[in-house]
Amino acid sequence: MMNEQLHIIITGDRGKIFRIPCSRKKLRLLLSASILFLLFLIITSIFSISLFTKNRDYSSRISELKHQLKLSEETIAKHEKINETQRLKLNLQVANLELNNVKQAMAFKEEKEMLMSTAVSELNERSELIEKIMGTIGIHLEKKKDSETGNSGGPFIASQDEARDDLLFRADKYLKTIRAIPLGKPIQGTITSLFGKRKDPVNHKKAFHTGIDFRGRRGDKVYATADGIVKKAFKNGGYGRYILIDHGNGYTTAFAHLQTILVKRGERVTRGQLIGLVGNTGRSTGPHLHYEVCLNKKPINPYKFMKIASLLKKSSSAPSEKK
């Protein structure tokens, strides 16, 4: 059996010899350990190299991302600058539009005031004309009543629209008054007998005519001369078929010798509304319309009302009659 003991001899420079006894078993263990250590170093190196490579890739990607981030920040800053410029331009445009709107509003206001002034002036002229015309038949409007001033107070502020309000009040009152006053002709026929004294057409004696007679043909249309309510619509003795309309303020109109009555008692009518047809009923010598205007149940001459209607039509301030 061979000796298992081995000696490792190490010789120094001075000839000194060192002997290290070592068995084969220990040598194999040492060799195995060395191999394992070498493998560990190799594996560790490979892992380190791989980790280094990955770290280098990550560093490269991080650098690239940082570069992209920088570019993005620069782009965002650029867009923000552009947006700020556009916002300033937009604000300037809005300011210009607002200024233009203010200027336009001021221009509209001046134009409105000018048109209003012109309209008020024209309305005043026409109101004065209407007032003068209506005054010829003794129609005067009541003045606008002042509101009560008791138990009130406060600082005095002059009203710039007082004259305008007063004018509108007058014009409104005149329009309402005109609509309730019998103006114009009830038919378009010619006048055959005027209001007042005359010779009776049947017995040829002296008489008083309480209205105006208009020549017509049977079936000619007869119109109301003002707004009102029908008080009578029936056959009335010598008047024949007869309509009486109450217009308020004491005014009434009557239409006689009709062939046909087209309204009923209690019906509300308006100026220009068709109310009947010309006939020859009652005490009559031929087809015609007898037309009366009464104030407080007293007959008055309808002719001056028809004349006023023509004057009002020229002034363009009264509602036009329906034909």
Score class of each variant (00 low, 15 high):
M2G: 11
Q5L: 09
Q5H: 03
H7L: 00
D13F: 04
G15C: 00
K16L: 06
I17L: 00
I17N: 02
C22E: 09
L29Q: 13
L29R: 12
L30H: 02
S34Q: 12
I35L: 15
L38G: 14
L39C: 13
F40A: 04
I42Y: 08
I46C: 08
S48W: 11
S50M: 02
T53K: 05
N55H: 12
R56E: 11
R56N: 12
D57W: 03
S59F: 11
R61A: 08
L65M: 07
K66R: 14
Q68F: 10
E73Y: 11
E74P: 01
E74M: 05
I76V: 14
I76K: 05
I76S: 07
H79A: 05
E80C: 06
I82F: 04
E84A: 13
Q86Y: 10
R87K: 15
L88M: 10
K89Y: 04
V102L: 14
Q104R: 13
A105T: 05
M106Y: 09
F108Y: 12
K109I: 01
M114H: 12
M116T: 07
M116R: 14
A119D: 00
A119C: 01
L123E: 05
N124S: 15
N124H: 00
S127A: 07
E128C: 00
L129G: 03
K132V: 01
K132M: 04
I133N: 12
M134G: 02
M134S: 11
G138M: 07
H140S: 14
D146P: 02
S147H: 12
S152A: 11
G153E: 09
I157F: 06
L168N: 00
R170Q: 09
A171V: 09
L175F: 03
K176M: 10
K176Y: 11
R179G: 00
A180C: 11
P182W: 07
L183F: 14
K185S: 11
K185R: 09
P186K: 12
I187K: 03
T192R: 13
S193M: 03
L194R: 05
L194C: 02
L194W: 02
R198I: 04
R198C: 03
K199V: 15
D200A: 03
H204A: 06
K206D: 15
F208H: 06
H209S: 10
G211L: 02
G216D: 03
G216M: 03
R217G: 08
T225R: 02
G228M: 07
A233P: 02
F234L: 07
G238T: 07
Y239D: 00
Y239R: 08
Y242N: 11
I243W: 01
I245P: 03
H247M: 06
G250V: 05
T253R: 02
A254S: 14
L258I: 10
I261K: 05
V263C: 12
G266V: 08
E267Y: 11
E267R: 08
R271V: 04
G272H: 01
G272Y: 01
V278K: 01
R283A: 04
R283F: 05
T285V: 05
T285M: 01
G286H: 12
Y291F: 15
L295R: 13
N296M: 04
K297T: 09
K297V: 04
K298R: 15
N301M: 04
P302N: 03
Y303H: 14
F305P: 03
K307G: 01
I308M: 15
I308K: 06
K314G: 07
S316L: 00
S317C: 13
S317R: 10
K322A: 10
K322T: 07
